[in-house]
């Protein structure tokens, strides 16, 4: 007879966010599909997406403490508990390929013990990984060159304020929900952000000059399952979930790249008739290099601070950069030099 296993799956964000929606369409669907092959087990999903069980400020503890069985952990907001996971936010201009980055992260999870430990010490098992699309600059006035950044005020969420250090631009802290009015009212002259966020927030209406800087993608978190729940699952279900998680990670990485391009196309299309119209200018390669070299050594600062606390961040950073290069990427700055 078929055994029914009830599991709660939850998230702080709604399913309209692509990688949350893909938990349903890819992770859960694929798990069901694999299990259906033998028909021994069936999962009865109790879905609690969109903050029904916890908010963005508690994504890690909620999986850890079994408030949900499975959930998306947003590592951006867990810098203290997941320090190594922040690495990609301190290594800009390293890669623009989300699928490739996630594959490096998946590798690190298997080979870098400290990285695996920082996740698994929180009573959970990682099943799939999530990331962002690439960061660009959206401004009110055209951004002629890297030098024009000097003296500008740019809205940048949290940690990304670091990416403006050395450029002469001032970072104005904010969130996706405040950018529009911040630019409109002159609190800032533009925004450093993701196409996937800028399209729904309509930032192109007030900051129509898109400078495609391609500052790189960042690792943002994981689909994880509570360890106690995991230990209670039959091996067949565990195997199905591991496979579904890998499928999710791969699909999500590929989807991000396509969506990023589609979002930019869409903004150009919708904004063609506005005044001034939305324009897209790729940043000159020389300007990108000027930018990345103007920055202080963010990665070293970050790694040194963690090393002082006993977290082996230098080795992790080395492995991350090696992983990117091994897969054929040429980071614009070798952040692991001089560690």
């Amino acid at each position: 007879a078929q055994e029914v296993i009830p599991l709660t799956v939850a998230s702080s964000h709604p399913t309209v966010i692509p990688w949350v929606g893909m938990i349903q369409t890819h992770f859960m669907a694929r798990t069901d599909e694999i299990l259906a092959a033998t028909g021994t087990y069936q999962i009865q999903w109790n879905e609690a997406f969109g903050g029904q069980l916890y908010k963005a400020n508690a994504t890690l503890t909620s999986v850890e403490e079994g408030i949900t069985d499975i959930g998306w952990v947003f590592s951006f907001l867990e810098a203290a508990k997941l320090p190594l996971s922040q690495g990609s936010s301190y290594t800009p201009f390293a890669t623009n390929n989300p699928a490739l980055q996630l594959s490096v992260m998946q590798d690190l999870l298997a080979t870098n013990e400290a990285f695996l430990e920082e996740w698994e010490s929180h009573n959970l098992k990682v099943l799939g990984l999530t990331g962002t699309d690439s960061y660009d600059v959206y401004t009110k006035e055209p951004l002629d060159s890297f030098a024009a950044l000097d003296g500008m005020k740019l809205s940048a969420p949290g940690v990304l304020g670091n990416w403006l250090r050395g450029t002469g631009a001032n970072a104005v802290d904010g969130a996706l929900t405040t950018f529009y009015t911040d630019v409109q009212t002159g609190v800032s002259d533009g925004v450093l952000s993701l196409a996937l966020g800028m399209l729904p927030a309509k930032i192109y209406e007030v900051a129509p000059y898109i400078t495609q800087v391609n500052m790189g993608v960042a690792f943002s978190g994981a689909i994880a399952i509570n360890r106690d729940t995991w230990d209670g699952l039959p091996p067949e279900v565990q195997n199905a979930m591991v496979e579904a998680g890998q499928y999710y990670t791969k699909s999500h990485g590929e989807d991000l790249l396509l969506r990023h391009e589609a979002a930019i196309r869409k903004m150009l299309e919708i904004g063609a008739d506005q005044n001034p119209p939305v324009t897209l200018t790729p940043m000159e390669e020389a300007d990108r290099e000027a930018w990345v070299n103007a920055m202080p050594n963010l990665a070293k600062e970050w790694a040194d601070a963690l090393e002082a606390k006993g977290v082996p961040a230098s080795a992790y950073l080395q492995a991350y950069m090696d992983g990117l290069r091994k897969r054929g990427e040429t980071p614009l700055r070798n952040w692991d030099e001089g560690l």
Binding site: A80, K81, N162, A171
Partner: peptide
């Protein structure tokens, strides 16, 4: 206890 042990903080490292 957990916040104490993990050094949980608000804000952004470096800022």
């Amino acid at each position: 206890g957990k916040d104490w042990a993990s050094g949980e903080y608000i804000g952004v490292t470096g800022i």
